Amino acid sequence: MASPLVGPEKRERTPRRRAFRWWAYLALLPLALIIGYFAYYPALSAIFWSFFHWQPAGVSTFIGFGNYVTMLSDGIWWSSFRNLGFIFAFGVVSWIFPLFAAELLISLKNARWQFAMRTLLIIPMAFPGVVTALVWGFFYSPNDGVINQTLKAIGLSGLAQNWTGQSSTALLSLLFVGFPFIAGLPFLIFYSSLQNIPTEVLEAAQLDGVGRLARFWQIDLPLMASQVRILLFLAIVSTLQYGFVAYVLTGGGPDNATMVPILRMINVAFQGGDWGASAALSTTLFIITIAISAVVATARRRGSATTDGGAM
């Protein structure tokens, strides 16, 4: 091995960033206080009160792991995770739509048309989530909803039903909120990934006679692997926090058919008045989220290390 001091080659030195003086970091103190009070304090407070029979306006009694013992026998709580499994699986499968849209959009030769279509697909992301949920609630209305009215107009009135009001169709109805699922984060990630594919790679594939479908399987999809892993991680975290649409449209019903952990926590606290048990549920969900995040992050690091090792 040649000495780094011998030879005409010079080692490239990574420029070191100049450190700020210590007092400059005091500018971050207000932000740290805000994050600590509004993010970390509620989480730590929930962990603390999960060991109490918590009465926010009264006397709270320490009961140890009593709330967690109660949680173990809460069938509604555990069945809500089964619903989350369906929500996660459906969400991942629905990535087909934004991926297909991104592939179509990136293939447009006209830059103006590509910009116009991209804008039309991104603008709906700015709409408030409550508006989207309420609009779909109108679609699902059993009396004058768009879906039932359309079925009646085409002679399929026998298929009209109370979509969110019966347990057999309620969860599936929630899953289809936002169809065709293009205006969202997956579309942006897929589209930006396709934009970042080197032009040289695409030109070489074209010279080799690689067709559009073959290019998708052999070039586009493998080069998007890291972005897909990130998207998968975000999907897991967002699924564990799912509850807004179900709260607006069904409230977890009917017969707990659309119950999810977030809604179960709310019901135990506000309807059951058992704030300590709700804190135990939230703490458990927090631990599950952290554990899954750690596993996914570790898998990502190992995957990146394997890729870098194979490239050397």
Score class of each variant (00 low, 15 high):
N143C: 00
L156I: 04
V130M: 13
A24P: 04
S73T: 05
A39K: 14
E9P: 09
L5Q: 03
P42N: 00
M259Q: 15
I147D: 06
I123M: 06
V177N: 06
T132R: 13
Y242K: 02
L108N: 06
A111V: 13
L263A: 04
F65Y: 04
V146F: 14
R264W: 02
F139C: 08
G58V: 07
S3L: 10
F176N: 06
L234P: 12
G273F: 03
Q206H: 15
A46Q: 04
N110A: 08
L121E: 10
F216L: 12
G276K: 05
L240Y: 03
G137E: 10
E103T: 14
F100H: 10
L105V: 03
L31C: 13
G184C: 00
A101T: 02
I287L: 13
A294C: 12
D308R: 14
I96N: 02
G64R: 12
Y247C: 01
E103Q: 13
S173A: 07
W275E: 01
G7W: 05
A126T: 11
T70E: 13
I182L: 05
F38I: 08
L29C: 14
A126C: 07
M265P: 03
Q218I: 03
G251T: 08
R21E: 14
L84H: 04
T306L: 10
N256F: 08
G7H: 06
P142H: 00
I230H: 14
F62V: 07
V268M: 09
G273Q: 07
T61M: 01
S282Y: 05
G252H: 07
S282A: 15
I288C: 10
L33R: 02
Q271E: 12
D220G: 02
Y68H: 07
G158H: 03
E103K: 10
T119L: 15
T289K: 01
Q114N: 08
